[in-house]
């Protein structure tokens, strides 16, 4: 079943369309990776689905519900979206920031949130930042920060989590740390995870489904094995690489890659 279905969507900035009449299917309970060169429209798709960037034409539904009929709070309960580089005040504590993730559930004159405290604690435990609750954001390492942001998105308690380049600016250990956390959330809570990734080996290893986008067009959708072919790498990324399958794993890996640009 599709957790998200974008039907013939057109979206742009000013007069320039970034995506024109493109359709995307994102399966429920899976990890879907959006891959493609810089400026191809990956982040725009995430922003459109999360309602931050309104679409000009087409229709987007989440868990079978048209997002146009949802108000911002209802939408936030369905989809949690994490920007590539969110701006937060450095002197905010981790717990205060995670609390912001409960905004959609606050109601009434005094902003009551019946399950707030429980959900905040749960989100911090799941994202492994409970012990950092009273630490300031600017006192955290890059990996801890990213986990704190993920805790904020988990506080939404939404079935879908979307992350724009969650591993950018992180060293390899912290990249794997974040990806393992997302995999764990997908397995244990059946969350649908959508993320933009630039490392194709990581995309192949962690994602169940890949959507390749180039120049505003959805070029190919399928399992990593179906999408990551030598032809696609040459056509879309201008990279010559060998695709290999190690005996111990089921996903493809890029080997001996080199750029085709200027060749």
């Amino acid at each position: 079943m599709d957790a998200i279905f974008g039907d013939q969507i057109t979206v742009g900035y000013g007069k320039r369309n970034v995506l024109t009449n493109q359709s995307v299917h994102i399966h429920s309970g899976q990890i879907t990776g959006l891959i493609g060169p810089n400026g191809s429209g990956k982040s725009t798709i995430l922003k459109s689905i999360s309602g931050i960037k309104p679409i000009e034409h087409g229709r987007i539904s989440v868990e079978g519900q048209d997002i146009d009929v949802l108000n911002p709070k209802q939408r936030a309960k369905q989809i949690a979206y994490l920007e590539q580089a969110p701006t937060v005040p450095g002197d905010l504590t981790v717990k205060s920031m995670v609390k912001l993730g409960r905004y959609a559930y606050c109601h009434g004159l005094f902003g009551k949130d019946e399950h707030g405290e429980t959900q905040i604690k749960k989100a911090m435990v799941e994202a492994q930042v409970a012990e950092l609750a009273n630490r300031r954001i600017d006192a955290l390492s890059g990996g801890q920060r990213q986990r704190a942001f993920i805790a904020m998105t988990l506080a939404h308690n939404s079935p879908v989590i979307m992350l724009d380049e969650p591993t950018t600016y992180l060293d390899l250990t912290h990249q794997l740390d974040v990806l393992n956390l997302l995999k764990h959330l997908n397995h244990t809570q059946d969350k649908t995870v959508v993320l933009v990734l630039h490392d194709l080996n990581q995309a192949a290893q962690y994602c169940d489904q890949l959507i390749c986008i180039n120049e505003g067009q959805v070029v190919k959708t399928g399992t990593p094995k179906e999408v990551l072919t030598e032809e696609l790498l040459a056509d879309i990324f201008q990279v010559k690489a060998k695709i290999t399958f190690q005996s111990s794993c089921q996903y493809p890996q890029l080997m001996d890659y080199e750029t085709l640009v200027n060749q």
Binding site: K73, A76, P86
Partner: peptide, 24 residues
Amino acid sequence: VVVLRKSLTLLVLDDATASSLGAK
């Protein structure tokens, strides 16, 4: 402030993050 305090608090975030949390 009493009525809008939750929304005012989100002003410190960038617009995309605040919107994703359900704010305007």
